[in-house]
Nucleic acid binder design. Structure first.
Lengths: 252, 252
DNA sequence: TTTTTGGCTTGACTTATATCAATGCTCGAT
DNA sequence: ATCGAGCATTGATATAAGTCAAGCCAAAAA
């Protein structure tokens, strides 16, 4: 992706893509939000929810649009309500490592850093609540419950990161793919998506860059798992034919 | 290490190894603590420091002693004042991945989890301040500054973890070793250790399990870096002969 | 002092995954 | 209906790192 392209996307996300959510609406829409009870908002009572809604905007991003870039000062924080976001780091020579995928309910910036440690862009169409860092940061100062919830979110991220470290440091390609599928299924479940068919909106290249493999190895490993009847490859995803054996593979 | 051995160590850390720090002393020793301003205690004023000291114990661990184990309920939290601790996860089949080394000033349990996500044991002799999770957790409830500091510590851990993910996913053996040495040097500096000679108290096996390599590859890579005059291998450590080129290697 | 032990290094060989190179598929544009 | 662009798959080959097997060295035990 060239610079010009990137600028175009930034522009998008700064103007046309953003719609004011609270102002001009007859009532609090957050009350009926799909991620009301799994996002940080779960820590809020009705009054607080309305307060926070007043200081938030809804932002939509088309696939591939950037939410923010590594090392950039943190102006906005995001709570994802729809879609999938990839979080990644780039090395100077162009190698990319995806450190995680954010799903609905996830909060980007939970550690309240001054600058982003990773870049983020939309894999699918994404809808997020955007908070100004300033406003959010001062708002939580006398909201210990919200601060604790944020801490909890940051802790979960750390746990996921440590599991990723084990995966990358000590597991084979087949184990990585199995662990990826199981972990994604489990996270989708928590978000309310219960199904044997797992949708994989990200490309093979994304999966490869997440698992520390090449696209060819990812492809071959999928084919192998399919031949062994542990998964069935379907358009835009896989069906977990034998989740138990897959889980066993994933665990080691 | 067998189970019997492990029990022995647990016993050690529960009795003879622990010395009460506050009671019976004429004054607050924390005031003169070596990590007073780099540990979480940096968030405390003198009064708070004394309060926290009253609810802490000093605990010493000999090399190889366990501080806690993965999945174990979190009874105590630790602030490391001396020595090096390895944090690791074990796979069912015995593979080990070290997720990090804790140095003086580091806090173990900053994410306040119900159970530990990793195991920890002493690499060198270790001295730590031990807090009961219960006591600490309720103490911070009306100490937003301390809670924020804790959040900051958890965030740093996340940042380190994400860098480790990039290292394990996308870097060669040589780059991993270089990054390890540079990162350790930088962390030692922050702790007040400024020297071209970097002490490496952990074994080659520890380094291998941290970098996702085998002990042989670690050894060969050290030898190669030494032949190329980028490091000089000395007893219990290395001298960084050419830190700039090493840093360049580490960055990519 | 000699022996043992545990950690480290080195060499020879193997292998899992990467790399390079076609080829195939799907879907939107022409 | 055909073309072309982007993904994805598959095959052939290369290579970085792993495995297996000595041997070395220093410190602890006998």
């Amino acid at each position: 992706m060239g610079l010009a392209d990137k600028d175009h996307i930034s522009e998008l996300s700064d103007s046309s893509a953003i719609k004011i959510c609270y102002k001009g609406r007859p009532e609090c829409v957050c009350t009926h939000c799909a991620v009301r009870f799994i996002s940080i908002c779960a820590a809020l009572d009705q009054d607080e929810l309305e307060e926070l809604e007043a200081m938030s905007q809804s932002a939509s991003f088309p696939p591939k649009a950037g939410l923010f870039s590594q090392d950039e000062p943190v102006i906005s924080l995001f709570s994802i309500t729809e879609g999938v976001v990839r979080l990644y780091k780039l090395l100077p020579d162009g190698r990319r490592q995806i450190v995680g995928f954010a799903l609905p309910g996830d909060f980007l910036g939970s550690s309240l850093p001054a600058r982003f440690g990773v870049s983020a862009d939309a894999v699918t169409s994404v809808v997020a609540c955007r908070f100004s860092r300033q406003g959010f940061s001062t708002y939580i100062d006398d909201k210990p419950r919200l601060l604790k919830k944020l801490h909890e979110f940051a802790s979960n991220e750390l746990t996921l990161a440590q599991e990723q470290i084990v995966l990358l440091g000590r597991r084979s390609a087949e184990e990585r793919i199995a662990a990826f599928l199981i972990s994604l299924r489990d996270r989708m479940r928590r978000v309310g998506h219960v199904s044997v068919t797992l949708s994989l909106p990200m490309s093979r290249q994304d999966i490869a860059d997440f698992l520390g493999l090449t696209i060819e190895t990812v492809s071959r490993t999928f084919t192998k798992l399919a031949k062994d009847k542990r998964i069935l490859i379907v358009p835009d995803g896989v069906r977990l034919t034998d989740p138990d054996r897959l889980e066993q593979l994933a665990t080691g």
